[in-house]
Nucleic acid binder design. Structure first.
Lengths: 216, 216
DNA sequence: GCTAGATTCAAGCGTACGTTTCAAACGCTT
DNA sequence: AAGCGTTTGAAACGTACGCTTGAATCTAGC
């Protein structure tokens, strides 16, 4: 299909990883991609829309994979609830998989992207996290609540948010953590194991079942 | 003391909170502060240094408060280890306190700032998190290891990193979470309680005591 | 082989940026 | 009140930005 469009997307991603999102200009992208400046506005309309296209290209398959894993777990669990550990892995492992797919040139890309999404979440780029992640969070939140009257959907989703934040930390400190001892991707999946082990008991813990308008 | 310098710092902080860090220009700052453009470069040297001054003004007291609380806990614990919950609170409560001190106009400021620090951590602004947070992390990490041969300093610090990431999530989603039911700051400290409760068992969990160059 | 649409190109538009300049005003000490 | 370092003022510097323009080139369909 259109090679120019993809070349632009690839180049943009590469530059985001290399020099950060805010520091990447349209001109730098065109230089990296070997295309003309007008091509970006022709194919994407604006820098902002290009940016969103870069995100969506990665986020959509990521969330599809998450949901696929969740459905598989729910099928296996029948009427019962899914184990927290399996739930967490279904939610987090695809992130590491994506990270490995992105290749070695791009260490802090996903982490920076998550951080950038946080910053932009209530600003010009209108609520991207909302639009692209809310459904997945809700599905996983609902699965976490199942068979647990002590845990409300709100609280389950907040706990998932903790996982997101902690995962962001793992991704963004990847450069620091991968010292000399182990290969980077191995270290990352090891770190994911430790992260899941860390988060699991918190997910097991009793919730408050706050009815809206609750205690002081 | 110098009112111009402080007016600039205050105005910068306000604008960061209101429109984001990347979107805040020197000209906007001078307009907000009611000072001349040259004043910024006279007092701070460059935009980058102003930026760092804004950070340091908040980070330094924050970390002092954290360490003060930690020392108090260690004194009370004598030779024994500090309870994970108390340790977490000593680490996280000052963040909420700072958030409340910042006032109501500035909801996502701290969260965005944390996210921004993440993004910039390995770029132009050379390792700000390293410079300003590594000592505190190390002190808390050491306290978490105490009397726990299963938990290495590295692993303890990584667990603290999870707490940082999750706390960032709490701060940045403050606007969403504080719906109509409760006042914003109340909701925040309630959310902190839930966060600490969530994190605590993970801190209790056994570590791996990885000796450097450990197992596959 | 021609025509119509889709795509690429070189060039430049206006604007906003961070920073600099240099003279004027201030606040001290003597 | 003179002198001098510190601080502020108005103006502009050069640069880089996102984006547009209008012609050139490609690619089908007939």
């Amino acid at each position: 299909m259109s090679t120019t469009k993809e070349r632009i997307l690839d180049a943009t991603e590469r530059l985001f990883a290399r020099q950060g999102i805010g520091a990447t200009s349209v001109r730098a992208i065109t230089a990296e991609a070997g295309v003309n400046t007008a091509a970006i506005h022709y194919h994407f309309g604006s820098k902002q829309e290009l940016l969103e296209a870069v995100l969506v290209r990665r986020i959509a398959p990521l969330n599809q994979e998450r949901l696929k894993r969740l459905e598989r777990l729910e099928l296996a669990a029948g009427d019962g609830p899914v184990a927290p550990r399996a739930l967490l892995e279904a939610f987090l492992v695809p992130v590491v998989a994506l990270r490995e797919e992105l290749g070695e040139e791009v260490p802090p890309f996903l982490g920076s992207l998550m951080a950038w999404l946080r910053i932009e979440s209530e600003r010009s780029t209108e609520a991207i996290p909302r639009r692209y992640f809310e459904d997945v969070m809700r599905r996983f939140g609902a699965a976490a609540c199942k068979g647990r009257p002590d845990l409300s959907l709100d609280e389950a989703m907040e706990r998932l948010g903790y996982a997101v934040g902690a995962m962001g930390h793992v991704l963004v400190t990847e450069g620091f953590a991968a010292r000399a001892d182990v290969a980077a991707t191995t270290a990352l999946s090891e770190r994911l194991d430790r992260l899941v082990a860390f988060l699991e008991p918190g997910f097991f813990a009793r919730g408050e079942q706050r009815s809206p308008g609750g205690a002081s």
